[in-house]
Design a protein around this nucleic acid. Structure first.
Lengths: 195, 195
DNA sequence: GTCTATATGTGGATAGAC
DNA sequence: GTCTATCCACATATAGAC
């Protein structure tokens, strides 16, 4: 039986999220209107509310999906026994995963303050779970005497902050290949934590 | 002669900037209305326009003042001849200067996309001037064989990104003193760039 | 310099026809 | 499921009285 004219539930939902993703990343959540998103998708503003109860949920779902994807992808990596190899793999994974999703990363970092308190807690929990995976590597390396950092908690945040810096300047087709970027960062991270 | 009743040009201007600073940092430029700022100051919204032609100028001036303060303060530091001491001083300066101005720093990083193109270029120029001062230190250290980094441009951005990470977690009265934080970061930066 | 009042536009979200 | 039409709150900015 033919679908009702103008009915596209299977494709409009993803298109809405994709449009919101791009617009939120470019202009910021607060600066983007539901009408802009609708226009990008090619529907009227009212139609968006068949897919999201409100604008906040749209933002939250984008961030939640991103963080869950991150944790799932990291979970599928094999974990080498030796800490240096594990850290190297973490650095490579982090850079590549984030480079492939610049909009999601940008939003996850910039729009935390636009989440409701409940939604914020949820995202914070996911972020911490990811940081814990790096902490495990650093502590393992310190036990074996391979690594040495003055403060593990700070080192985790410092390494992640350093790696996230890639997103602010790297552009495909630039001076360096992704392999080279990964190598340069790994070199600095390794030296920063090695005993 | 007595001032006109309700006239406070000498104090209202700074209060407006201070209120805007706090509100922009907490909620984001796009999410803050001129009415909110006015309420915070204790005047009506229309009165703000005696001090700023528009909301955009308010944002721009906050960012411009911050970057100019940063460059001026760094310019007044004495510059040790040896690169390691110079880098150590840079790290300490950067951490302390930024920790004392969390709102300004937050805005300078988060609200770049809400500047008009002309204003953006202006701020970008100031930011680059600051990065150049770190580049000079790293290149000096590499000439003397003290430092060794795979890519100087990346190293600059990596170091600054790492240091800026402090702002996301440090709170006065926490586990570590500012001296300790400075020491821990210096330790990582030094190792990351030392030959 | 600040106020009140207002012009003018846009925001999120909903109702009901198709 | 999407549309049109609309409610109502709030946005930036200005005008003119005091």
């Amino acid at each position: 039986m033919a679908r009702t004219q103008g009915s596209h539930s299977d494709i409009t939902g993803p298109r809405i999220r994709k449009a919101a993703l791009g617009l939120f990343a470019r202009h910021g959540y607060a600066a983007v209107s539901m009408r802009q998103i609708a226009k990008d998708v090619g529907v009227q503003a009212g139609a968006l509310y068949n897919y999201t109860p409100d604008k906040q949920s749209l933002l939250f779902r984008l961030m939640q999906d991103h963080m869950q994807d991150l944790l799932a992808a990291y979970g599928e990596l094999e974990k080498p026994a030796d800490a240096e190899t594990a850290l190297r793999r973490f650095v490579g994974f982090h850079i590549r995963f984030h480079m492939e999703r610049p909009d999601e990363v940008f939003i996850a970092y910039m729009e935390l303050r636009n989440l409701t308190p409940e939604n914020f807690s949820e995202i914070e929990g996911l972020r911490r779970a990811y940081e814990d995976s790096l902490e495990a590597i650093l502590q393992d390396g310190q036990k074996s005497g391979l690594f040495s950092v003055a403060d593990t908690k700070i080192a985790i945040l410092a390494v992640i902050a350093m790696l996230n810096g890639v997103m602010t300047w790297y552009r495909a087709g630039g001076r360096l290949s992704l392999d080279e970027v990964e190598q340069v960062y790994w070199d600095m991270v390794r030296r920063a934590v090695t005993a």
